[in-house]
Amino acid sequence: MGDAAEDYARTAMNQAATGAGGIVSARVEDVTASGRVNLDLNGQLLLDVACADSYRDRAADDWVAVRMGARPVVMWRLGDDPAATDEARMQALAENVLDDMQVIRAATYGTGAPPGTGWQQATETWIRKVSGKLEVYFKVGDASDPSPGTPPTRPPKAVTISPSDTGSWRGGRPDSYRNNPYQGDYSGRGNLRGAWFYGTAIASACSGKTVSSMKVAFTRKSGAGANARRSLHLYLHGYTSAPGGDLNLGDGPEELLSLSVGAKGTATLPAAWRSQLASGSARGLAIYARGSRDYMSVTGGQITITFSA
């Protein structure tokens, strides 16, 4: 935390904090890549504030209780009881784990008929693979005990694709000083545009499947531009790898995400964009802005694709 933020924290503790321990409420501006948070405290931006372990599932725009001091600490989230939300989340996680399992209660063998009741002798066996999962069918002579139904087919599992390369361009050529994607101009030397490249991995992952969503994760680097939230100006591009000349932009801009310095966030791509990426008519993502207001450097670019069939 900078000296100005620490000075403000001391002032806030003396003037605004009430109750034992100096607990005040604040709004989370963003979650940082380190898992800390940037806080909006009465209009003042406090950067990279530590959080107690009790503050879990951290997210931008949470209202939180902050113990003030020379080093403020977020203690817990303010709001409704999360029990119902947690139950649904845990159920979804359990179903996802079970989807990876082929469950048979017991597998035994011997030289004669099995002991006990309820057994049926299979005279023929068929197997097939559906959505990567094995199905087995037994033909029996007497189906006195009705067969259980076939469970519904689950969609293919989500995949996450990381960029194979990144870079920035200025003045119609690559900027050799910047390996990370940048947008805007802070020096008067010309506007920057940055890009993430994935080869053909996105289209390959989507081949033969129905895409339901694409989400991309970004982190805004420290030391580039204003500390406050600024918008990413996102575009598509058609390159499988970094061009040696200018980086031409496709559809855009879309302002799907705003980040303060050091923050991480996830943007959901528009339906038209995911269709282009899935088909291969677009290959990757780019950022571009004019001037210094939205100047920033961005890392990440991992795209998570979910499917409905």
Rank of each mutant, 00 (worst) to 15 (best):
G69D: 05
P148D: 09
R71T: 13
P114A: 03
M75C: 07
S168W: 05
Y109I: 12
E87Y: 08
G112R: 02
P151E: 04
N180C: 15
S187M: 12
G172F: 03
M90Q: 12
G167T: 04
Y186S: 07
I127P: 00
G118I: 06
M90W: 11
P151F: 02
D175T: 07
P115C: 09
P152T: 06
G69V: 07
I161P: 03
K133A: 07
G167F: 02
D145A: 09
A113Q: 13
A83E: 11
T125G: 00
T85Q: 14
K129T: 08
G190Q: 02
P156N: 04
A143H: 11
K133P: 00
A106D: 08
P163L: 11
Y109M: 13
G116E: 06
V97W: 09
Y137N: 03
V159L: 11
K129P: 00
I161T: 09
A92F: 06
A70D: 04
P174F: 05
S162E: 10
P156D: 04
K139L: 04
T108V: 12
P72C: 01
T150V: 12
E95K: 15
W169V: 10
G172E: 03
A106K: 09
A83R: 13
A88D: 10
I161Q: 06
P156Q: 03
R105I: 02
S168T: 15
A113M: 14
S187W: 14
S187E: 11
A106W: 07
P115N: 13
W169Y: 15
M90S: 11
P155C: 14
P156W: 02
P155M: 15
W169R: 08
V74S: 01
G79D: 02
A70T: 05
L98E: 11
L78C: 07
T153H: 10
G79I: 03
R89F: 09
V74H: 01
M101Y: 10
A92Q: 10
L134G: 06
E124M: 13
P115R: 13
D175V: 08
G188W: 02
D175H: 09
K129A: 06
P115A: 15
G184A: 06
Q120Y: 09
E95W: 10
G141W: 01
P152W: 02
W76C: 08
G112Y: 02
T111V: 14
D80E: 14
N179Q: 15
R77Y: 02
D142M: 10
G184R: 00
V103P: 00
G79A: 05
A88L: 15
Y109L: 12
R193C: 04
A92N: 08
T85K: 14
T108G: 06
L192C: 08
I161N: 05
G190L: 02
G172T: 03
V136G: 04
G118K: 05
A107E: 11
P155Y: 14
G69H: 07
P72I: 00
Q102A: 13
V103S: 00
D86G: 11
A88M: 13
Y137W: 07
P72W: 02
F138L: 12
R128S: 09
S144I: 08
F138S: 08
R89V: 07
Q121V: 05
D185V: 05
R170G: 04
A122K: 01
Y137P: 00
P148V: 10
T153M: 13
R170C: 10
S187Q: 13
R128Q: 06
A84L: 15
T125F: 01
P181S: 14
P151G: 03
D100G: 12
